[in-house]
Design a binder for these strands. Structure first.
Lengths: 236, 236
DNA sequence: GACGTCTAATGGTTAGACCTTTATACATGA
DNA sequence: TCATGTATAAAGGTCTAACCATTAGACGTC
């Protein structure tokens, strides 16, 4: 029925007001908030209190502070930085393992592949095939590991777009950002692995083009399963 | 080669020192840091600067402030709260629709059910059955809608625990947090719906107990599919 | 036009005071 | 004896009024 009455600290109210303004788009990325000495008048708090609010907003990744003339609090694009930082802490304290991330990711990407198969249009298939071409080129001697990985990434994110659900895309982008360090560190950079990888994606695109949801899911699982060993073994 | 010289603000140094102490286990969960007036002497900064550092640590979820005698900054277990909050910001910012949330959730919970079926132990089943009993009681006349929903919630979160992957749990918590307002608003409060709901979960528990992954997934999809109409129609 | 120098805007920091919340000890009274 | 009220002090929350540090831009000198 009731919930615990929340501790009311004035700076929290300031945080909420500014946060709402950002999330509702009343101020947008790049906008400069008034200088501290004006904000303090607007909210009718002391400068110390106002600054505590700014620290919280900064930590949330919602604003960025610049020094000097013309400096101040600038609205940032809401991004994945705070999530990434929080996850990094969890990983460092062994509250989550890279293997858990990888398990979740495989599942997530498989769902995305399924949705993409259900919803992809003709143009979408062309875009995916472009990535495959790009990847094939990067695989030719002398093969370019970085370029293959970059193409693979964009392939996944594009599939996320095709899936047509913002929630999947948001979660996908966040997981990608956090799992990549492990890929870079543990996945071998040999050509065989990458060629197998390329083969997986070709099959996947075929499945998506055919609208075969189950096959798309299977392909994606096979594709990511290829790396399970590396991540799982190195975790914990 | 080089990177941008980082802006050096004194409170950031304080944040780092305390954060390191926590991450390295020199202070552990429940420990109380000295009062502000002592900390400010230790770090040789003003109280204002110290308090800005405490706000950052608080936002990172590393400490918690309690008021009054014996109050102060207490070390917290590193947890998923900041990750959840950051994700919630992203979802809010990306203006995800209730329908998108519901689609993702069905998928996520289904995966969780599958993992739970694979990993549940004997005790886990007993706990789930307790929730079912609780729900059955709340369904008897006069039936208590709030109690049923509360039990249902805890059922889902417990299933998330049983799934044994912290990443799923964190994402699940985030989605729950964001989808609940819509459930409260749009889902009908009649007894028939809730009784059907109860039936779904009974079948689900049977599947989990039997370790039947596919059936557990199917049950969960059926369970949440029950609400698709309400969320989807009212969304956007 | 290239290079210093000055200036003002603006965040960063400090000191010291007072207000508010809360656990505890103690007193009061049924 | 036990419940209830009250005083006390520890500790966070807030405020005021300065001064310090950084930086863009104006201005001037060579």
């Amino acid at each position: 029925m009731f919930e615990k009455a929340k501790q009311n600290r004035m700076f929290q109210d300031v945080v909420e007001q500014i946060q709402d303004a950002i999330l509702e788009g009343r101020v947008v990325q790049g906008d400069k908030l008034p200088p501290e000495r004006e904000l303090k008048e607007i909210f009718d708090v002391s400068r110390g209190t106002l600054r505590e609010a700014l620290r919280v907003l900064e930590q949330k990744g919602l604003i960025e502070i610049r020094l000097g003339v013309g400096g101040g609090a600038f609205v940032r694009e809401v991004g994945t930085a705070p999530v990434t930082e929080g996850l990094a802490l969890l990983l460092r304290r062994n509250k989550v393992s890279p293997a858990e991330l990888a398990e979740f990711r495989k599942d997530l990407e498989a769902s995305i592949a399924g949705l993409a198969a259900r919803r992809a249009g003709f143009d979408d298939i062309l875009i995916l095939k472009d990535f495959l071409k790009e990847m094939a080129q990067a695989l030719e001697e002398p093969f370019d590991w970085e370029a293959v990985i970059a193409a693979d990434n964009r392939f996944h994110l594009t599939l996320g777009e095709i899936a047509g659900n913002q929630v999947y895309r948001t979660i996908q982008a966040t997981i990608h950002e956090n799992i990549h360090p492990y890929f870079d560190r543990y996945v071998p950079r040999d050509k065989d692995t990458l060629e197998g990888n390329y083969g997986d994606l070709c099959l996947l695109v075929d499945a998506v083009a055919a609208g075969d949801e189950k096959e798309a899911i299977r392909c994606m699982q096979a594709h990511l399963g290829r790396y399970d060993g590396y991540i799982v073994d190195s975790g914990k």
